[in-house]
Every structure is written in structure tokens, then in C-alpha cells.
């Protein structure tokens, strides 16, 4: 049972990250390689607020979101000035910088040793320490994030994001300011990524910089590419695919010595096939050219 609940929590964390990434890449055409940086900053800010400042879970959650809204400003700057691959390269640099800070600023982050003893969430007098109740909290938060994005999808704002993605010049010729919509997309996406970071930190009670590397950013992109860009159900499918497929492969009888590597190889092969035969992913409306 605990195993299933653990998988559910991982699905929830990656679903939140995928939805945030989908707003950037799928709706706004911004292929960001720094999503793990915002995920990590969210986790660290919440951990420090909970441990060092003794803040409540709610305050830590909103503190992490607010902090991300500030530190996303360099990416906003990139988004306004750079396009396509140049934007991706700039966000790659940002990811590397954030990782270096998390790894080396030992006074704050404890460097490679990470932060231990992050307390479990406490809300309205309820202590979410056991796995089942934490899963309930995670599910409620994920559901709220999902509803937020489903609502956003139905608003005219979603159309403006997609307009920027499809043709910036055309947007300008109709009097729209692409920079405004890009800023909004980066800000919302960074804020939402912080929520995933807070869930991750309080679930594992331990964080270190290796959970927020460039690999993780690429993984988040691969989730939305596989699920499909520009749709909510694409993000859901991508997150489920990423978390569940390696778990399903556990049931194949593979010798323990090679199991982990072989599972990843099978997973990678499936990824390649999806990219080759389904360039729009499972439910995508859009693909990068």
C-alpha cells in the first residue's frame, strides 16, 4: 500500500512540474531548460523557512512561491529578448548557475550534504506525517493546481499565450505585446514549480542539489513532449507515463545486478519511439519545428 501511495505522490509532483512546463513550452513556445532550478529553489526556500525560521507550512509554501516570482526575473529577461534556441541556451545557463549556488553556498544550503529533518506539513492543527494523510494533502494541492490550469485553458488569456507561440510578429501587428504574455507565462510557471518543490521537500524530509540538476530539467521537458504540448491531458499522460513505466518494468523478471540500468534503457527506447512515431506526443496540439 505504501508503495502505491509513494507512486501516487511522485505522479503528483511530476504532474505539477509538467503543467508548469506545459504553460511555458506548450502554450507559449518557450523551451526552458531551467524548470528544475525553480523546483529546487522552491524546495530550498520552504525547507529553510520551515527549519531556520520555524515558519508554518502555509507560510513556507507561499514564501517559496513568492521567492520564485522574484528569482524568475532573469528568465523573464531572457524570454523577452531571446527566441527559440537562444532562449533555451540562456535558461540552460540559469539552471547551471542555480545548481552551482545550491551546491556551493554551504552556509545556506549545506552544499552537497543537503538539508535534513524538514518537518512534515501541519495545517489547521492537522499533522500530515503519515504517508496516507500526506498523500491526501498532496492530492488536494495537485487537484487545485490542475483546476487552476484547466481554468486558465478556458480563459482568453490562454489564446494570447498560444498566439505568442505561433507568431510573435503577427501578434505585434495586431497591437499585442508578446513580452507581457511571456512574462506572465514565466512568472506563473515558476510559481507553480515552487509548489512541486515544497511537496518534494516535505515528503522526503531531505533535499540536496542532485535532485535539481539539468538532467531533471530535461526530464521535465521530456514528460511534456511525450504527453503532448499545449494540452492539459498531455501533461497528465506524460507524468503518468514517466512515473509508471519504470515501475511497471519492475515486474519484468530482470536480474537485480542489471535491473536498474536495463529498466532505464527500455524506458529510453520507448522515449525514442514516441518521439519518432508520435511527434505530437500522446495528446499534443503543437510541436516544435
Amino acid at each position: 500500500m505504501n508503495y502505491l501511495l509513494h507512486i501516487l505522490i511522485m505522479c503528483e509532483i511530476y504532474l505539477i512540474l509538467a503543467l508548469a512546463m506545459n504553460l511555458l513550452a506548450g502554450y507559449s513556445g518557450l523551451l526552458s531548460l531551467s524548470q528544475a532550478a525553480f523546483y529546487g529553489i522552491g524546495a530550498y526556500v520552504a525547507a529553510l523557512l520551515l527549519i531556520q525560521a520555524g515558519a508554518s507550512f502555509t507560510l513556507s509554501l507561499f514564501g517559496a512561491i513568492a521567492f520564485n516570482l522574484i528569482v524568475c526575473l532573469p528568465v523573464v529577461w531572457f524570454a523577452i529578448r531571446l527566441r527559440d534556441l537562444f532562449f533555451a541556451l540562456a535558461t540552460l545557463a540559469w539552471q547551471i548557475i542555480v545548481f552551482a549556488v545550491l551546491y556551493n553556498w554551504t552556509a545556506f544550503t549545506n552544499g552537497p550534504f543537503g538539508i535534513t529533518g524538514i518537518p512534515k506539513p501541519e495545517l489547521f492543527g492537522l499533522y500530515f506525517s503519515s504517508l496516507p494523510v500526506f498523500t491526501v494533502l498532496g492530492s488536494i494541492i495537485t487537484l487545485l493546481v490542475l483546476l487552476f490550469f484547466m481554468g486558465l485553458h478556458k480563459t482568453p488569456l490562454s489564446r494570447f499565450f498560444q498566439g505568442v507561440r505561433d507568431d510573435q510578429l503577427a501578434m505585434m501587428s495586431f497591437g499585442k505585446k508578446p513580452a507581457y504574455f511571456k512574462t506572465l507565462a514565466v512568472v506563473i510557471s515558476s510559481g507553480v514549480s515552487a509548489i512541486a518543490g515544497v511537496l518534494f521537500a516535505t515528503y522526503f524530509s531531505y533535499i540536496d542539489p542532485t535532485s535539481f540538476t539539468l538532467d531533471e530539467s530535461i526530464l521535465i521537458i521530456s514528460i511534456v513532449l511525450i504527453g503532448g504540448l499545449g494540452t492539459i491531458k498531455g501533461s497528465v499522460a506524460g507524468a503518468l507515463f514517466y512515473v509508471l513505466l519504470p515501475e511497471l518494468l519492475r515486474f519484468i523478471n530482470i536480474p537485480d545486478t542489471i535491473a536498474a540500468n536495463l529498466r532505464m534503457m527500455i524506458y529510453a527506447t520507448v522515449l525514442i519511439m514516441v518521439v519518432m512515431y508520435r511527434p505530437y506526443g500522446f495528446y499534443g496540439k503543437y510541436t516544435f519545428e
Binding site: 489564446r159 498560444q162 498566439g163 505561433d166 507568431d167 510578429l169 503577427a170 501587428s173 499545449g230 496540439k285
Partner: peptide, 10 residues
Amino acid sequence: WQTPRIFKNL
């Protein structure tokens, strides 16, 4: 524009 600049995925 010479080539129609429409929002092709919408």
C-alpha cells in the same frame, strides 16, 4: 504579409 501570418495551431 506576403505569406499569411496566421496562428496556425489555433
